[in-house]
Design a protein around this nucleic acid. Sequence first.
RNA 1: GCGCCUGUAGCUCAAUGGAUAGAGCAACGGCCUUCUAAGCCGUAGGUUCUGGGUUCGAGCCCCAGCGGGCGUACCA
Length: 541
Amino acid sequence: MNLSHQLKEHLRTTLRNLQYPDEQIFLEIPPTPELGDRSCAVALALAKKLKLPPHQIAAAIHGSISQIESLFRKVEIAGPGYLNFFWSGSALSAVLTEILKTGESYGSSTLGAGARRLFEFVSANPTGPMNIVSARAAALGDSLVRLHQKIGFVADAEFYVNDAGRQVRLLGESVQVRVKELKGEAVAIPEGGYHGSYVIDIAKVALTEYGGDLFHDSGDLVGRWAANRIVLDQRRTLEEYGVRFNRWYFESELHENKAHLQVLEELKNAGHTYEKDGALFFKSTQFGDDEDRVIITQEGRPTYFLPDIAYHRDKALRGYAKAVDLLGPDHHGHAQRIKAAMAALGLPADFLEIIIVQQVNLLRSGQPVKMSKRAGEIISMDELLAEVGADAAKQIFLSRRWSSHLDFDIEVAKDRSEKSPVFYVQYAHARICSIFRKADQQIDFSSADFDLLTAVEEKELLRALSLFPDVVEAAALQYAPNRLNSYLAELATIYHRFYHNCRVLSDDLEQTKARLALCRAAQIVLKEGLRLLGMSAPETM
RNA sequence: GCGCCUGUAGCUCAAUGGAUAGAGCAACGGCCUUCUAAGCCGUAGGUUCUGGGUUCGAGCCCCAGCGGGCGUACCA
């Protein structure tokens, strides 16, 4: 159990002993170290309920908890009624010991208790290469999966491939047109078809592999073939980006299993549907949606909505306790209806959580770059990553919260990529690695005397390292990797300051040992923090 | 019209309803015979869009207004 969890437990016990009403215990990190290592505003929160001055409550808690000397050396009441806790030297030594002992597992917890969570993200249509929005979603989703695994959830990543429906047929027809074009025949691209140059590339492959016979087949068939090629490309791009999915779930699988028809029967039998104007509607208004939605068209064809319901239902059938979807802002209207469908199928209200990841405005030297797959104006994710680099791009995405509409200027990103904050963090890690390369390998720092770490920079570093588990937990539960990103930048600053002012390798063997131990701990936390953000931790730079 | 998101330093963005609103970049001034200067130290930069409200306390919550983005299909 980490320090914060122990402190919370003590506070809960104290509140019970004082017979105060139940109150959520929340620990904060004070703005400056002078105000302590952790603070708690519970006295302020209780003041309202108890109708007592916050200071009086804080004093009562203070009087009751102050005996526990092993955890903190000092508790202060400050400001309007904060309780500020200062870790004891032994508690901080224990943190250092724990980091050295547990290594990369430091910061892990069992909070999630093995509950299964499925994160679905990117799910870009297989009708063209991915763009920068997918890069943002991929960075975020990947980090959330890692963070949830870290705190004890069984978290999986999934990519849903819409390889069915009209868009795939149009893709097929667009390919057919390009094949004819390559054979010298001029044909117009169908209404709503895809104009991008990648379609020509696919047509060239079709021509060499199939000799051009492809355009005799149905658009659907050609579309499926082309979509599969595109999906392979998407997977390669994402893997180069460092993002892997546990499963690529094809919509066509659902159609083959008739899973959508099964869900349809269920909705019908439960009385959640009705016919109107020859179409079949789902009564989503009964579950909070603005209007009822068509699930079977007049022509008797299911809309995209029906298989989508089946897909999300399937997540529950596969044993996930919670499904988290990262969707783009253009799909926000979709959120309510799919949630309505989950409710109609009897799933708990919090089964499906939808995060709308806001758009990325792509700029080049301040000028907006408009993107449209159909018009063929695309700056692909591949091109972006080649220009900016995966780590620097991820840093930009993960330093913002998901609700921010962010500007991504390619030129600025290129110019600044060398100055990216991610390099600052990686550099701290590389510097530590360098020290260990220079250090005498015979030195056993596990037996170091941590009481020698008395310099301001050393104590600051210890304090920062003790925060890591709290930050990881908050970042995961709030779906906010940007918190971890800020923390790592702060930790790197503190490390660089330590590095500048405290020489590690010296003639003083005992001091060298203690500082090596501190460096190892910082190295572990920096590397693990970067890993949780999906970024690399190079040993030299 | 309605719905979702958004407005914070010159720029890009942080800040679980808490203490003195913080970083990076850009600007200016210092520090390399010492474990990596992709670093350190310092200066400057703010009416958190506006007006009300809620409360011990509001950048954050509520109401109204103004500005920006995105939706508003029997497409996916």
